[in-house]
Simulated assay, not measured.
Amino acid sequence: MTATANTPVEVRLTKAGRTKITYPAERIGDDGTRVVVRAPWAAPGVRDFGFVRFEPGDVFTEYYWRDRWYAVKEVRAANGRLKGWYCDITRPVAVAGTVLTVEDLDLDLWVPPDGGPVLRLDEDEFAASGLAERDPRAAAAALRALDGLEELAGEPGGLAALLA
């Protein structure tokens, strides 16, 4: 482990060169490749996506990799009930001391806990972002990451095996 578990950290989510949100979390693991943090729902109020609601009291266990183009967030209600997994397609996490910086590349994947349909999200935002023109290698890596996570989510044990 490269850092002490159960220590406070700050997660900084950026998008298109700007900080989108910064929130406190607790680092619960770091093996040198994957960093795991736990944080309460950080945005104000409720966010209703139609297929899931994120709301005060929800707890996110977030998995970030230094060598992968995604982050996976296990979402649980305040009572501990698993709501599902929200997967952000991102550049690999950058860790500097107690700050984790993650660049959101617009693509997302929702994986419900009951084996329901896996949802690809925000492909229109990704196309409109211009990333394919500005940084074709990053755009290709992002699409490979999305496809790989979607495939993994459809397998028995899927994301749970990735996060174990």
Rank of each mutant, 00 (worst) to 15 (best):
A5E: 11
N6I: 04
P8V: 07
T14P: 09
G17N: 11
R18M: 14
T19H: 13
K20Q: 15
Y23T: 09
E26P: 05
E26S: 15
R27E: 04
G29C: 09
G29D: 14
D30N: 13
D31L: 08
V36Y: 07
V36C: 06
V37H: 06
R38V: 15
A39K: 08
A39F: 09
P40Y: 14
P44L: 11
P44C: 05
G45W: 07
F51C: 02
V52T: 12
V52N: 01
V52G: 02
F54S: 02
P56W: 13
G57C: 04
F60A: 01
T61D: 00
E62I: 15
R68C: 06
V72I: 13
V72M: 00
K73W: 10
R76Q: 05
D88E: 12
I89Y: 10
I89D: 07
T90I: 05
T90K: 06
T90Q: 07
P92F: 14
A94Q: 14
V95T: 04
L100Y: 08
T101G: 08
V102G: 03
D104H: 13
D106H: 09
L109N: 05
L109C: 10
L109R: 02
V111W: 01
P113S: 13
P113W: 04
D114Q: 01
G115W: 00
P117V: 01
P117N: 07
P117W: 02
V118Y: 03
D122N: 12
D122M: 02
L131V: 10
A132M: 12
E133F: 09
R134I: 10
A138L: 13
A139D: 12
A141G: 11
A145T: 07
A145C: 08
L146E: 11
L146F: 06
L152V: 09
G154T: 00
E155D: 11
E155S: 05
G158H: 00
G158R: 03
A160V: 12
A164F: 10
